[in-house]
Design a protein around this nucleic acid. Structure first.
Lengths: 264, 264
DNA sequence: GAAGCAGCGG
DNA sequence: CCGCTGCTTC
């Protein structure tokens, strides 16, 4: 390794309420020591964000939340700069679903893509447009020829091997052809799926529905959380993995952390 | 001690939801090993009562509950017989505030006296009548010349030394002169306050209001939980004390267990 | 199933 | 402050 080389470990995790998950998150940070943790579904107003739990472990944290629903936050133990909350800067509509920061001169876009409810629901159309809107947002600000990360809960399983029952689930908002196409369009801006760079197996899931009893044992999972890197950054990705440990411990989220490491 | 002598340790505790308090109750039972534990504010329908948690520790348990509010239950590690739920037997009105059992041929009346809200409220009159009704209920069935116990959350601090601010609290439903008189009337049927048999100090409290922040440190307490014995039984009372340990542990109730020991 | 909230109650 | 219910969301 060169003297000035630096490894950056980044994690994305839909925590399903940052406040109720604090002990689980603390165990994760202590054990895994990611440089950056991108969280989704924090479900907390910015005024009530538990900053102290993160600073006590040496992390700065930036957030864009609202009451009850959604909410994204990014914690970093290396210096971090705020780029944007929501698509149109501070206080924008839907700010609680997009948070862009810069770490080590790399823009990190943390997103919680709308779930879409049902392909017949108008909120599904909103989901499809959300992906298009993100591609435009990226295009106006960045180029895929430079280092950039897009991570988060995308609410899309890209391929058949990313769900446990591809036939049955083709009408699910997270596996409907239109959703997969919308995700692929934005990924097509210039992203590489870091997990798939290093893992070819099926049944690699980051989400198990709470309501589906024994879904973990039955392997009824979904791979809907992703770490997407532009090509110049993807080249530096040395590893990517799903960390199942928080699921085995106390008070797990329905999502599991996804990690990637980059040799900068 | 005689060969056939038996010590009976009895506890009363407003647990403020038996289900959310199970771990705290388990620690209490293991550490203190009472023979009988009378609980109030169990806040659970009989169908949902967590019987298993008690049987696992060697206790039978009888209960008279309703959804959300009130509810009384008595656990015993020595054989116990059901006498009555509510004033008029099974399925009676207000059954969730009175449970009578018999242990070692001693009737034990476990009661959760209505709080009364405010002396101006009509529910305060109901509280006063409740005490009168209990005295009648006792008179119809028992005699103070025999062994009997009346325990529970009486929602009355009998004397000035039993509250932290007697002047200020004289209009509180738990210290209003009418409430104190109503309690004294029923106690006058033939009861001795077992705690006062063995403790003369003031500031001996069994309740600290959750809403009064730092009430414990400020000693803003109330002695509203009582173990009352008829004279022939009071003679056998060898000790009575408040167990503050559950308050120092995890997930405490706003009430603290009160205990008494009898050498039968 | 497990979060959040409002509204009620002690 | 801390339970409960009943509602909503994912």
């Amino acid at each position: 390794m060169m003297a000035n080389s630096l490894t950056m470990k980044i994690a994305t995790w839909n925590v399903n309420s940052v406040r109720s998950r604090i002990p689980t998150i603390e165990r994760f940070l202590k054990r895994v020591e990611p440089d950056v943790l991108c969280m989704q579904e924090t479900k907390v107003r910015d005024d009530d964000f538990p900053v102290e739990a993160f600073s006590a472990l040496g992390y700065e944290v930036l957030f864009a939340g609202e009451k009850s629903y959604s909410g994204v936050a990014t914690a970093s133990r290396i210096p971090m700069k705020l780029i944007a909350r929501g698509f149109d800067g501070d206080g924008a509509e839907d700010a609680a679903r997009l948070l862009a920061v810069e770490v080590q001169r790399i823009p990190i876009v943390n997103s919680y893509v709308p779930q879409g409810r049902d392909p017949k629901d108008e909120r599904f159309q909103y989901k499809l447009r959300w992906f298009a809107r993100l591609r435009e947002w990226l295009d106006e600000r960045y180029t895929p020829r430079k280092r950039l990360l897009w991570v988060g809960d995308m609410n899309v399983a890209p391929e058949e091997r990313d769900v446990h029952a591809p036939q049955r689930l083709s009408n699910h908002p997270d596996f409907h052809p239109d959703a997969r196409r919308a995700f692929a369009e934005t990924a097509g801006w210039g992203f590489v799926d870091c997990f798939r760079l290093h893992n070819d197996e099926d049944q690699q899931y980051t989400f198990y529905d709470y309501r589906d009893t024994k879904s973990v044992e039955k392997k009824h999972g979904w791979r809907v959380d992703h770490i997407m890197a532009t090509k110049p950054l993807a080249k530096l990705c040395s590893a990517a993995w799903i960390d199942i440990q928080p699921r085995l411990g106390e008070n797990p989220s329905d999502h599991t952390p996804l990690l990637a490491e980059f040799d900068l």
